[in-house]
Structure formats: structure tokens, C-alpha cells
């Protein structure tokens, strides 16, 4: 277990610099195995992302990577290019479950959880079913049914109303954290703010809501994020984009027993949704707002900002 395993010459094994919660260290004293990195779906983008499971607690952690151009590590007597810093932070598994519940909701019926959380691309998603107190968690976002005559299994169905209520609570508790952490969420500070009578401008609260909404939106699909923004009554743009009503009318006009097969209909529908959601009303509103002081999670971790540091 020597620090910095030397391979003598040439490239050596990749080293990852991690920050993890301290209690993982204590938990590790009582376990032999059960800590593992797996690839699961990112509930916002639908792409793959790395998570850490502790099967003994059990608990789910999200892995985020800090990455900035032109950085490297010296790790004891070695050099590691890239300068990446990995963070493992606890993640609410409900965001991931929600991804599957929403997907399953297209069938529009109550289903047992093990039929909902299925994924050909990310088969490790079955590990989610091992997390504790799932039933309690699911109450926030689903309607449930039990059929005691057949089995004791619970059947779940996604509820948008409940989910929006749950997300509102999430936004509120994130806002509180933003305030206690003194995160700068507002637009540019104007000098008049220092001289006028009221030190706290009225729209400051709104900045916090919008910022918190942005943070939560990194964990939910785009459509739900838009619904949440409406639910929170985030300002609509003055000239809102008229939703193309023609398509919707057409769809409802068609007989239920459409000639096309159902899957075809589904993909078609998805495509139009995607097109429409390229830039939604809320996003357009945001685009008009001065965002100079705003940061999203990406600003911490992405490498958008290229600092002008000469090659050394």
C-alpha cells in the first residue's frame, strides 16, 4: 500500500484524486466489500454517469469531476496530468427512480417497482432496488396500490402533481442552503443598492428561486424542469412562444385505434416534444436576464472558462 506505486519507467497507473464524506472512512472499518463505482443513467441528460454505491449502509453517491484547462497534480513523487478532482456526494435516489417512473408512465398503468426500474443500457440500475426505505421515498412522487388478495406487492404510478410538490420542497431547502452558504446568486450588484434606503431589493428572493430551480433542474428531465418553473411561477416571457396547437388537435382527432402501431406513434410523439423543448418559454426568459453573476453546477466542474495562462 505504498503511496505512489512506481512502475520504474514510462507511464504508470492512473491516479484519481477524490474527496469523499468522512463517514465512508468509518463505515469502511466494518465492511469487507460492497463499495463500488457503477455507471447509471444521468436523470437529466439520459446519458451515462458514474455513481458510487455503498451496499452496506446502503447509500448512493454521485460523482462529480472538477476539471479546468492547464492543470496537473504532483502526487508525492509522481506527476498526474489533467489536474482532475473527483467529488463523491450523497445523492437522493429518488431523482434516478423518477427517471424510470416517468419512462414507465407512458404505459399509463400501475406497475411493481422491479418492472419499472429496468434498463438494457445500464443494467446496474437494479442496485437501486436495494436502497432502504424506497416505499417511503416513492410516496413523494407516485400513487400506489396494493392488492392483498393476490400478493403483498405494491404497484406504483408516476404522479406529476405529487412530484411537483416534492420538487418545490427541494427548491426551498436548496434556497435555504444557498443563503447560509452565501452563494452569490444575484445579477450584477448596482452601486445604488449601497445608497438607497432599502438594502434588500425585492427581486433578490426571485434570484434565489431561479438559481435553486437551476440546480434541481440538473437532476430532472427538461420537460419536468419547465413544468416546475411554471409551478413555481417563475416569470414568463412577455412574448411567449405560441405552442403549435395544430399537432395536438390532430392527435386527439385521430381515432384511438390508430392504424399506425403504437411504438411508431410513441417515437413520433417524442420527436416533436424534443423539437419543441429546444428552447422553452422559461429558458427564453432566462436568456434575457442578466446572468453575469449566476453559476450553475457546470460552472464549478466544466471547463468552459479558459484562463489565459501561458504554457510553462
Amino acid at each position: 500500500m505504498a503511496a505512489g506505486v512506481d512502475c520504474g519507467e514510462g507511464a504508470s497507473a492512473r491516479q484519481h484524486v477524490f474527496l469523499v464524506p468522512e463517514y465512508l472512512k468509518d463505515a469502511s472499518k466494518k465492511m469487507k466489500s460492497g463499495l463500488m463505482f457503477v455507471k447509471l443513467v444521468n436523470p437529466c441528460s439520459g446519458e451515462g454517469a458514474i455513481y458510487l454505491f455503498n451496499m452496506c449502509l446502503p447509500q448512493l453517491f454521485e460523482i462529480k469531476v472538477f476539471k479546468e484547462k492547464n492543470h496537473s497534480w504532483f502526487i508525492n513523487e509522481s506527476v498526474q496530468s489533467g489536474g482532475l478532482l473527483h467529488f463523491a456526494t450523497p445523492m437522493d435516489p429518488l431523482f434516478l427512480l423518477l427517471h424510470y417512473l416517468i419512462k414507465a408512465d407512458r404505459e399509463g398503468k400501475f406497475q411493481p417497482l422491479d418492472q419499472v426500474v429496468m434498463d438494457d443500457v445500464f443494467p446496474n440500475c437494479i442496485l437501486l432496488l436495494k436502497l432502504p426505505e424506497l416505499e417511503k421515498l416513492l410516496r413523494h412522487v407516485t400513487e400506489e396500490k396494493v392488492n392483498p388478495e393476490i400478493d403483498k406487492k405494491k404497484y406504483y404510478k408516476y404522479s406529476k402533481e405529487k412530484t411537483l410538490k416534492w420538487l418545490e420542497k427541494k427548491v426551498n431547502q436548496t434556497m435555504a442552503a444557498l443563503k447560509t452558504n452565501n452563494v452569490n446568486v444575484g445579477a450584477r450588484v448596482q452601486s445604488t443598492a449601497f445608497f438607497s434606503g432599502d438594502p434588500v431589493s425585492s427581486d433578490k428572493e426571485e434570484d434565489y428561486i431561479r438559481y435553486a430551480h437551476g440546480l434541481i433542474s440538473d437532476y430532472i428531465p427538461k420537460e419536468l424542469s419547465d413544468d416546475l418553473s411554471k409551478y413555481l411561477k417563475l416569470p414568463e416571457p412577455p412574448a411567449s412562444v405560441p405552442n403549435p396547437p395544430s399537432k395536438k388537435v390532430k392527435l386527439s382527432d385521430e381515432p384511438v385505434e390508430a392504424k399506425e402501431d403504437y411504438t411508431k406513434f410513441n417515437t413520433k410523439d417524442l420527436k416533436t416534444v424534443k423539437k419543441n423543448s429546444k428552447m422553452t418559454a422559461a429558458q427564453k426568459a432566462l436568456a434575457k436576464v442578466d446572468k453575469s453573476g449566476m453559476k450553475s453546477i457546470d460552472s464549478f466542474f466544466g471547463a468552459k472558462h479558459v484562463k489565459k495562462i501561458g504554457k510553462i
Binding site: S12, K25, G34, N70, S72, F74, S78, V79, I309, I312
Partner: peptide, 25 residues
């Protein structure tokens, strides 16, 4: 998990430049 218990302390420096290799130095 056993490796998390008491690994040796390490000296870490984050440099403002990219060194393009991973190797002992």
C-alpha cells in the same frame, strides 16, 4: 474498503499547467 482505513498521508500540489504524462517524477 480496507484501503480507506489508514492510508499513508500524501503531499499534493495542484499546478497551473498541464504536464502531459502520468509517471514517477
Amino acid at each position: 474498503p480496507v484501503t480507506l482505513r489508514d492510508p499513508a498521508p500524501v503531499l499534493l500540489h495542484l499546478l497551473p499547467c498541464e504536464v502531459l504524462v502520468n509517471r514517477p517524477a
